[in-house]
Design a protein around this nucleic acid. Structure first.
Lengths: 181, 181
DNA sequence: TGCGTCATCTTGTCAATGGCAAGTTAGGGT
DNA sequence: ACCCTAACTTGCCATTGACAAGATGACGCA
C-alpha cells in the first residue's frame, strides 16, 4: 500500500503479515526470514531489501504494534478501567506484535518511527490514568501499567491457571477493578 | 557437584553458569550451544550429552529458576508486600532465569522437575497472598501476581522511564503498596 | 593386574539460517 | 528510445543445532 511493488505486489506488507502469522504460535526469535520469503513466494534474499535484516523486520513490526496499541487505547474511550482492558485486549489479540514490542534487544528500539509510535501510545496510557488520581499520578500510572502488563504477559505465556476462565478481558476487568475500586 | 565429571570437572554446571552469563545481556534465544561449549573449553557436541538439545538446557535452567524463586519467596518472610518485593528482586537479580521461566515455548514445560519446582513456587506465592484477603483470595492473588510480574517485566525490558529511579525493589514496594494499602 | 563397561567427551557431517555481494528485471520519467 | 532506480534473484560463506560414530578414561570386578 505504501508503494506498489513491481514483481510481487506488496511484498513488504506480505512479509509482515506472514511474520505475524508465524509468530502467532511460536517465538519471535524462532522466526526465519527464509521461511517468510518462501511463504510470500519470493527468493530468500528478498526480505533483506525491504528490511535490511531480521532486526529491521522486527523494528517495522514493533512500530506497527505501537500504532495498533495507540489506536486500541484511543478507541477504548475515557474510562480508566476500559483503557486497561483495552491494553490487555490488544496484547491478546496482537500477541506477536506485543511480544516483539517489549523485547527491545530484538529490534532497533531507537528507530525514530518506533520511538514516535511508542511515545504516542505511552501518552494515551498516561492520560488515561491521569483522570483518576490517588496518592500521586506517577504511582497510579506505574501501578496501572504494571498490573495490565503483567496480566497480559501471564495470560499470553499460558502461566495462568485454567480457573481464571477463557475470557481474558473479563478477567482483566476484575483484576484492574481491584486496583481502582 | 551432582556427579564428578571426568574430563572437565563439572561441565553441566559450567554450561548452565555460562548460559546465565551470556543471557545476562542478551535474549535466551540468542544463546548458542556452541558458544557455551567454547566458553567451557569443550567440543561443540559436549552440551548435547548433558542436555540433549537446546530446549533441554533451557529446561534445566527453568527448573533451577523456579527453585531459586521459591527460595527467594521463602526468605522473604510472611509479609505480603515483602513477598512481592522479593518476586521483583528475583526477576531483576536472576534476569536470565526469569526470562526463560515464562517463555514455555523455549523449553519443555511439562518436564516433571520443572513442574514440581513451579508448583512449589506457586504455592508460596499463593499462601503469601492468602494471609491478607480482600474481596476474594483469587482476585487478590491474581492482581498481586499481575502487578509484580508486570513491574518486573517492564523493569527488565527497560521500558520504564528513568524517573522511576534506579532501585527496583524500592519502586516495587511503592507500587505494590498501592494495591495493598 | 587385567578386562570390560559405561558415562563422558570428540570428530565429522548435514541441513538450515542470516547476511553479504553481484547480477537481473521491470516500471517510470525524460 | 533510453536510462535509472527500485525490486528482486542467484550464489556464496560462516554459524548453528542436531545427529552419528568413534575415542577416552574412571571404576568395578575377577
Amino acid at each position: 500500500m505504501t508503494q506498489r511493488a513491481y514483481h510481487h505486489g506488496d511484498l513488504r506488507r506480505a512479509l509482515l503479515d506472514a511474520a505475524v502469522e508465524v509468530m502467532a504460535e511460536s517465538d519471535p526469535a524462532a522466526l526465519s526470514l527464509r521461511d517468510l520469503a518462501r511463504r510470500a513466494g519470493v527468493s530468500h534474499a528478498a526480505p533483506a531489501h525491504h528490511f535490511g535484516d531480521k532486526a529491521g523486520l522486527l523494528t517495522a513490526l514493533a512500530a506497527q504494534g505501537f500504532e495498533l496499541l495507540a489506536e486500541a487505547l484511543r478507541d477504548a474511550g475515557d474510562d480508566l478501567i476500559d483503557t486497561g482492558v483495552a491494553y490487555v485486549g490488544f496484547a491478546v489479540r496482537h500477541r506477536a506484535h506485543f511480544e516483539v514490542m517489549f523485547r527491545p534487544d530484538l529490534y532497533r528500539a531507537d528507530d525514530p518511527e518506533v520511538a514516535a509510535a511508542r511515545t504516542r501510545a505511552g501518552e494515551l496510557l498516561r492520560t488515561g490514568v491521569a483522570r483518576r488520581t490517588g496518592r500521586g499520578p506517577d504511582v497510579d500510572a506505574l501501578a496501572a501499567w504494571s498490573i495490565v502488563h503483567g496480566f497480559a504477559t501471564l495470560w499470553n505465556s499460558g502461566a495462568l491457571p485454567p480457573r481464571v476462565g477463557p475470557d481474558s478481558e473479563a478477567a482483566a476487568r476484575t483484576v484492574i477493578s481491584r486496583l481502582f475500586p
